[in-house]
């Protein structure tokens, strides 16, 4: 059993949005659905010209955090949201009743309604697309020109992601909630 996670060297992000395009193409997110499944947050430059803080300008690529203690999984009344054998939070669309409780409960706003199946969907680390085809990378990782993302198995101490987490400082989003996200942002 693997334990999939992702590291984001977000300071390398140039906001080209190639990850958004690749993800939506790979996973069939419908056109016009902004902010869905994957996104790049923009922190605008603070201050008033000419007293500007260039350092404040940053891009924050993000998606489902694949929490180890996922609120969306706790609140699902039919166990449609579950952990797969690799610790990835998945949605079984045949069980989803579209009560939207997981959308309300997710502290990261990572869930959305898939208009094709009328069930809730989210980032699945490309489990049912690229990984199912035998590939070892996600679409967002493979397409990134500045190599922001590293996807891999953190249960394998020799994997690239494990080596990075051993050598670089990182933080997780809303860590105080105890959700234990598996998206790690490098400082």
């Amino acid at each position: 059993m693997a334990k999939y996670a992702m590291v984001l060297d977000y300071k390398n992000c140039i906001n080209c949005k190639a990850c958004e395009v690749a993800c939506k193409e790979e996973n069939g997110v419908l056109l016009g659905e902004h902010y869905h499944r994957i996104w790049v947050g923009v922190n605008p430059i603070k201050g008033v010209y000419p007293d500007l803080s260039i350092a404040s300008n940053a891009f924050y690529p993000s998606q489902c955090q694949h929490c180890e203690n996922a609120p969306c999984q706790d609140v699902c009344p039919t166990q449609a949201t579950h952990y797969d054998e690799n610790g990835v939070v998945q949605v079984d669309e045949s069980k989803c009743i579209l009560c939207s409780y997981c959308m309300v409960a997710c502290p990261y706003d990572a869930r959305y309604v898939d208009e094709r199946s009328m069930t809730i969907d989210k980032c699945s680390f490309c489990s049912d697309t690229r990984l199912a085809r035998g590939l070892t990378s996600t679409a967002c990782q493979a397409t990134c020109p500045t190599k922001v993302r590293v996807f891999g198995d953190i249960s394998d101490p020799t994997s690239e992601i494990s080596m990075i987490l051993k050598t670089r400082e990182y933080f997780t989003l809303k860590a105080s909630l105890g959700t234990e996200p598996k998206l790690f942002y490098l400082k």
Partner: peptide, 14 residues
């Protein structure tokens, strides 16, 4: 539901 949950998306697209 008033408060936006989009931690890093608060200022998306400026």
């Amino acid at each position: 539901l008033l408060y936006p949950m989009q931690t890093m998306k608060l200022k998306e697209y400026q």
